[in-house]
């Protein structure tokens, strides 16, 4: 079981790394959409890695089934939440960085004419 322990701890550490990088991205990235992107993508991979790491620690009993259920629901709900968040922001009229730049440029060009 020694090999399994090593694989599981590598998976757990990798999961923690991705989770942490997502948190840093959430603070450092410049605007709303990049932040949501950072948080949601790393969240999913961190959940995959951490739950697979924990799965290797179980001895194929009820806990395994529970972890698989948690995995299944996280895979559905967490991307949905990010999608809903970003879509509501679009709906509310928030522009992405590229779009803001082009609209700024066209505004200044109109002013120059």
């Amino acid at each position: 079981m020694f090999v399994l322990d090593i694989i599981s701890s590598v998976l757990l550490v990798a999961g923690v790394f991705f989770g942490l990088s997502g948190a840093i991205g959430l603070f450092k990235f410049p605007d709303f959409f990049t932040r949501v992107h950072a948080a949601s993508v790393t969240d999913s991979i961190a959940a995959i890695l951490i739950i697979s790491g924990l799965l290797l620690q179980t001895s194929f009993d009820l806990n395994t089934a529970k972890l698989i259920f948690i995995f299944f629901f996280l895979m559905i709900t967490s991307p949905t939440a990010s999608h809903a968040l970003a879509k509501s922001a679009r709906h509310g009229g928030l522009l992405s960085m590229a779009e803001r730049k082009t609209s700024d440029n066209s505004n200044t060009q109109e002013n120059q004419h």
Binding site: F73, I76, T77, T80, H83, A84, K87, S88, H91
Partner: peptide
């Protein structure tokens, strides 16, 4: 009404 994804996922999850 706009959130098609939310509607589908909600329908999927509520029974669970």
């Amino acid at each position: 009404k706009e959130h098609q994804v939310l509607r589908v996922v909600a329908k999927l999850l509520i029974p669970f």
